[in-house]
Design a protein around this nucleic acid. Structure first.
Lengths: 188, 188
DNA sequence: CACGAAACGGCGGGGCCCGCCGTTTACCGT
DNA sequence: ACGGTAAACGGCGGGCCCCGCCGTTTCGTG
């Protein structure tokens, strides 16, 4: 079926498994050579399957991204559009904070990204878009907020808290501030 | 005066100058060896003056940090405490976005940072604290916002927009969203 | 079973960071 | 003015990493 040879497919899987562990342990800049070594393949093979580090990260996080997309889909029919959006953002942030390297992977989209319109970030944005649109339609969210803004802000929180003492608690706190507004408009 | 030898002082300055340029060009992970090379010193000398990369970055950004602190001081007596805080945040963000590496330097405070209570981030936080306190006192800002939150959120925006198409415009937009509130409380 | 192409992986080059250690250089006291 | 000493220097080698090349193995197929 797949135009790929069987050993190639096997190596691909093996590398991916090892990469998941390694990225979880060392973050987005885990050593490719180390991955190759513990996967029992040459480092060239790793780069053959994943030409760029970003490609590897995308593959590593694919499952989680899809999970997030599915979650967003489920939330589309929720009663309270505002709560749904909040819920999704919290989940997204939780993922970004707990999965080392995810946030970094999400920031690195655009070095002339023509042939990758379904890379991590873009798909996430289109998954969040309906939730956002509905919330905007219900007047609970400012209309000049774009899906892109959602992702970027969340990723930003994750990145900024990454090296702190207790990232999770701090991140949730910051998300709260973000949603509620740091310095509301004067008429408050 | 200084217990330091004259050549040491000279090298220190020279390295610092080169480092500024190099960091401006290549961000927080500029090559230390490259800096040493164009400064005309051995790489060991660089590490002798700046034991860690973070130390070098701190020195590189010292001026700007102090400028920000001075600006905050000037704003302490402004008429409108809310506007003052906003003004400072905007300036801070502007610095963080335009000076490559600054944001990264600000996230990396705490690997058991005992003897460095006046590292970039900490001093910035104490500079912002009075502005924040006054704004809180005037009821224009939620009281559970800490100075640390201010810095972290701003840095987060800078980090997340760093690799995007037009960081500055996007960053200011995001700051606007942040201050005004992404998803205000239900009673809106 | 044999053959062609796909896939592999070892090797060398270049770079970076780091620590060691012999050498130079500035300072100070005589 | 000068010599001694400690501070400061910088070259070198080791370890790790990423990258590209290219001869070799291995899979799939006719």
């Amino acid at each position: 079926m797949s135009t790929q040879r069987s050993d190639a497919r096997r190596n691909y899987q093996r590398i991916l498994e090892v990469a998941e562990a390694e990225v979880a342990a060392h973050g987005a800049d885990a050593s490719l050579e180390q991955i190759a070594r513990t996967a029992g393949v040459g480092s060239a093979t790793v780069r053959r399957h994943f030409p760029t580090r970003q490609a590897l990260l995308t593959a590593v996080f694919r499952e989680r991204i899809e999970h997030l997309i599915a979650y967003a889909d489920g939330l589309r029919t929720a009663d309270d559009s505002r709560a749904a959006l909040l819920d999704w953002l919290r989940t997204l942030l939780d993922y970004a904070v707990s999965a080392r390297g995810l946030a970094d992977a999400l920031t690195y989209e655009p070095p002339t990204d023509r042939p990758a319109p379904h890379s991590c970030g873009t798909t996430l944005e289109s998954a969040g878009a309906p939730l956002l649109a509905r919330a905007v339609h219900d007047k609970t969210v400012n209309p000049d907020v774009t899906p892109h803004d959602l992702i970027t802000l969340t990723v930003g929180i994750a990145l900024a808290t990454e090296h702190h003492a207790s990232p999770t608690t701090e991140a949730t706190h910051l998300l709260h501030l973000l949603t509620t507004g740091l310095i509301p408009a004067p008429g408050a």
